[in-house]
């Protein structure tokens, strides 16, 4: 237990540093850079309003950065394993620490997001389109506090799906030899293009009907034509299932990690 807590402490420190740096970059690109361009081209006229506008757009960027970051942090596997095995930390503990660490990070990001969203919609009765979740699923319970709670659970689970995907892919790549990894990098997009092309051909020549796919996809996102609004429970179920399956597979693959020769 004490090992897990010291590993977790190490992980969280590193994650926070990464996130701090990512946010600095983001603010640099989304706020500072356009401001400089604005000053050069238009002088300081109405600069306050301009910057205010930029900052409101950082919310979307922040959500994006959170997802990208959690995905990346989830996928970093081999170098982390190298460092931990050198320091006498088992694969099991290293995996558990990463999972817990990223869940905590997701929790913090979502609490922040929740508070920010609630402040945005404060005092309005109709659901603001500035909060993506509420726009789609916000009418399901019909009681605002329940919908807001669901919003928190839903986005939390979604964020976890993202880092579990990172961990899942990261552990697959960590097990491949460098040469195999290169082949995979090239092969995956290639196969993707081929599959989509074939699929498109099949659909356009009516070999397979789109109806079944259509119904399935609608069910997945929780669309209900008779109710006229979306039900968050089916996608929630699918995401939960992915978190469990993806985590178990990534854990299994992590236990198989080994120091590669000559890399």
């Amino acid at each position: 237990m004490s090992k897990l807590s010291s590993v977790l402490k190490y992980d969280l420190k590193r994650y926070l540093r990464f996130i701090g740096m990512a946010y600095l970059w983001m603010i640099g690109i989304v706020v500072v850079l356009p401001t400089i361009v604005q000053i050069i081209s238009n002088g300081t006229n109405n600069l306050g309003g301009f910057i205010q506008n930029l900052f409101s757009s950082t919310l979307v960027s922040a959500i994006f950065v959170n997802f990208v970051l959690l995905f990346c942090l989830g996928s970093l596997t081999y170098e982390r394993f190298e460092f931990f095995i050198q320091n006498g930390i088992s694969r099991r503990t290293a995996w558990a620490s990463k999972w817990i660490g990223l869940t905590l990070m997701a929790l913090v990001a979502n609490i922040y997001n929740q508070v920010f969203s609630m402040v945005t919609i404060w005092g309005t009765t109709k659901f603001d389109d500035s909060v993506p979740y509420l726009e789609t699923y916000g009418k399901f319970f019909g009681e605002r506090w329940m919908d807001l709670t669901m919003m928190f659970v839903f986005t939390m689970i979604f964020t976890m799906c993202v880092f579990v995907m990172g961990m899942f892919l990261g552990s697959i790549f960590a097990l491949l030899a460098r040469s195999t990894r290169r082949i995979v990098y090239v092969a995956i997009p290639l196969i993707g293009v081929i599959v989509i092309t074939i699929f498109g051909k099949l659909i356009s020549s009516h070999v397979i009907s789109t109806e079944g796919i259509d119904i399935f996809l609608k069910w997945c996102v929780g669309y209900n034509s008779s109710l006229g609004y979306f039900n968050p429970l089916p996608p929630l179920g699918i995401m939960l299932a992915w978190i469990i399956i993806g985590s178990l597979i990534s854990r299994y693959l992590n236990l198989k990690l080994k120091i590669k020769r000559g890399e």
Binding site: Q86, G88, S90, T93
Partner: peptide, 12 residues
């Protein structure tokens, strides 16, 4: 194998 206690008592 995969034991923190034992691995933590060795350094390579």
């Amino acid at each position: 194998q995969d034991n923190d206690q034992q691995l933590g008592n060795m350094y390579l």
